[in-house]
Amino acid sequence: MRLKEHPILDFPAGREVVFTFDGKELRGIEGEPIAAALHASGVRVLRHSPVSGRARGFFCAIGNCSSCLMTVDGMPNVRVCTEPLKEGMVVETQKGHGHLPID
C-alpha cells in the first residue's frame, strides 16, 4: 500500500511505469527499487531459497543480504531492494540459484 498523506514527508509523484511480475502486469514508480514497487502491489514473496525452497522477501533494503534476489529481464540474482524500476521490466520470482541467460 502506498502512503498518500504523511505528517512530515511529501512523496513527489513520480512517473508511473508498467512492468510484469511473473507475467502479470503491475504498475510502479520509475526509479524506485523494484522491491518497493512489488510491495506496493502486495507482492511479498520474491524468491524461493536455493536448497530448501523456502519463501523469501524483502529484508535489508541496502543490497547487503541475499533475501531479495530475483530474475530481472532474464538476468538472475538481481538485488531488487536497490535495483531501480524501469518501464517494461520483466521481473520473475527466482527459484534456487537462477540460470544465466544464454544467447
Binding site: 536455493p50 530448501s52 543480504c65 541475499s66
Partner: peptide
C-alpha cells in the same frame, strides 16, 4: 532455524 539464508 535458518542461520545462513544464502545457502539454507
Amino acid at each position: 532455524v535458518i542461520v545462513c539464508r544464502c545457502e539454507d
